[in-house]
Nucleic acid binder design. Structure first.
Length: 493
RNA sequence: GCACCGAUGGCGAAGUGGCUAACGCGCUGGUCUGCAAAACCAGUAUUCAUGGGUUCAAAUCCCAUUCGGUGCUCCA
């Protein structure tokens, strides 16, 4: 069984990722702050964590995977206050939307979902531990801060020297109360009108970093195998998590740290002001398939910056079509009995290359290439009649391995698009949907089957004008007809 | 401003000292087809941002420049 070699931000080296102390690989991944719909940058991270998880499972490990939901923070409080609703009502909507999006992207759910608001006692206990060592201190207004001067290892993840980062210190209303400018908030005192919790350390709400320390420890213990998140979280978020957790417990926190790099959109930084900021739902309404979005976001390895483009989405759509067409051919085609040695060798090579690529720091681009090499070799063989039944079975097994990780071969795209349209209708956003999309989905499968049957009949009577008219009409509505030896097929483009 | 990362064909992208620079998409020609589609075959970067240097040998190492990104402040 292969072992995953994964870059570790903490050591700066590629190292094997294996469970220590328990049979399960224990991993914690920073989840969303549920104050809005998730954008494609968010999902690049969640997709690569999903890929990691699927690779670990494929490599024979079991995992205990925790993801947090940040359901209390400044933005949530601000937006809920503006909407004049309680924060839990505000976050419930976006949390539900987030899980719908995970489903659309075929992202597996972690074993544990941890909501910040449900783990307040654990956070308070952690702050008390730090307070007992005089590492946490309380300011006059009732907030608690972490005394950075007490952590000599601070900066080891992001390779920062404390001396060099003080100039960028945050200017904050509370700053005058802190002992040192870089000390960060563990607990924020109640401000008028804000949600707060009555606790043994006083009323207030959690600071940003404390929830991940508390929840990771709650579900995985003081030390665990892997902590992952977007590259921007490395500092200060993850650095602060390490500081809090290790100073409190006296034990190493996560052994291995993985950071997913940012994406660009059409070569530019994604931002609302650039006008290139997209949520998953935006793309579905434009008519792009969920599977194509998944495949594109996974096609560039996590450790590289990727350029997300609409041409890339079209490319991914076409690439998936080719894979699906191929899978169908292998599953349903008729082949001569027996086994061809050269195809068998190509199949074994593809499986080997595919596995080696993923084991090598999750090189998804090379893993993809290995599968496409197999597709070409097998299609050529099938065209020449040298692909045999045993070859088909072996190829199908490799395709199954591939799809257990990439998860794009099963076609749920039309249903997912319909669901997105139904959501847009409820939200009054139907005007954002592409017109061609509405035309395509207006046709039911039965309608299409009827037209295809009519065309087949027209062809039999050599009425090609009528047959072509039907085909062109359907094509204009996004339905592609293919005649083959085994009969007529159609698919939605 | 300081620190770090990146720049590979029409587009996306792998490769990080040594076989003809993967793979996908696109495009061109061919096979098949009533015509298409799918599939296959052939072609599609003498060259890896630019300028120097190291080496028998560089896309891969070093220096400089240009451009893009990230962190230093909320951010996947």
């Amino acid at each position: 069984m292969a072992t995953l070699q994964l870059f570790n931000t903490l050591s700066g080296k590629v190292e094997p990722l294996t469970p220590v102390g328990t049979p399960d690989l224990r991993m914690y991944c920073c989840g969303p702050t549920v104050y809005n719909y998730g954008h494609i940058g968010n999902f690049r991270t969640f997709l690569h964590v999903d890929l990691l998880r699927r690779v670990l499972l494929q490599f024979g490990l079991t995992v205990q995977h925790v993801m947090n939901i940040t359901d209390v923070d400044d933005k949530i409080i601000r937006n809920a206050t503006a909407a004049n609703i309680p924060i839990n009502q505000y976050t419930a909507k976006y949390e539900q939307a987030f899980f719908e999006d995970l489903t659309a992207l075929n992202i597996q759910l972690p074993e544990h979902i941890a909501r910040a608001t449900e783990c307040i006692p654990e956070m308070v206990a952690l702050i008390q531990q730090l307070a007992a060592k005089d590492i946490a201190y309380r300011t006059e207004d009732g907030s608690w801060y972490f005394r950075l001067a007490r952590d000599p290892e601070y900066g080891k993840l992001s390779k920062k020297d404390l001396e060099n980062i003080t100039d960028g210190a945050r200017v904050d209303l509370d700053e005058y109360e802190k002992d040192a400018a870089r000390d960060f908030a563990l607990w924020k005192a109640t401000k008028p009108g804000e949600t707060s919790w009555e606790t043994p350390i006083g009323p207030g709400r959690p600071g940003w970093h404390i929830e991940c320390s508390a929840m990771a420890t709650k579900f995985l213990g003081q030390s665990f195998d892997l902590h992952a998140g977007g590259e921007d979280l490395m500092f200060p978020h993850h650095e602060n998590e390490i500081a809090q957790s290790e100073c409190a417990s006296g034990h190493p926190f996560a052994r291995h740290w993985m950071h997913v790099r940012f994406l660009l959109v059409e070569g530019r930084k994604m931002s609302k002001s650039e006008g290139n900021f997209y949520t998953l739902r935006d793309l579905l309404l434009k008519g792009y398939r969920a599977s194509a979005i998944r495949f594109l976001l996974l096609s560039v390895p996590y450790c590289n910056q990727m350029n997300f483009t609409f041409d890339g989405l079209t490319e991914s759509t076409n690439a998936i079509d080719r894979l699906r067409t191929f899978a169908k051919r292998i599953k349903t085609g008729t082949f001569p009995q027996g086994r061809d040695e050269s195809i068998a060798a190509a199949t074994i090579k593809a499986e080997h290359d595919y596995t080696a690529a993923l084991a090598n720091d999750l090189n998804t681009a090379e893993a993809r290439a290995a599968i496409f090499d197999l597709v070409r070799a097998a299609n050529t063989a099938a065209d020449h009649g040298t692909l045999h039944t045993e070859n088909a079975a072996e190829i199908l097994r490799v395709l199954t391995l591939f799809d257990a990780v990439f998860a794009v071969l099963e076609d749920h795209d039309a249903d997912l698009t319909r669901a997105a349209l139904a959501w847009a209708e409820r939200e009054g956003r139907l005007d954002q949907a592409a017109p061609e999309l509405l035309a395509t989905l207006a046709l039911s499968d039965a309608d299409i089957d009827a037209l295809v049957a009519e065309r087949t009949q027209a062809k039999k009577t050599r009425n090609f004008a009528r047959a072509d008219a039907i085909r062109n009409d359907l094509l204009a509505k996004g339905i592609l007809i293919e005649d083959s030896k085994d009969g007529v097929r159609w698919k939605r483009k």
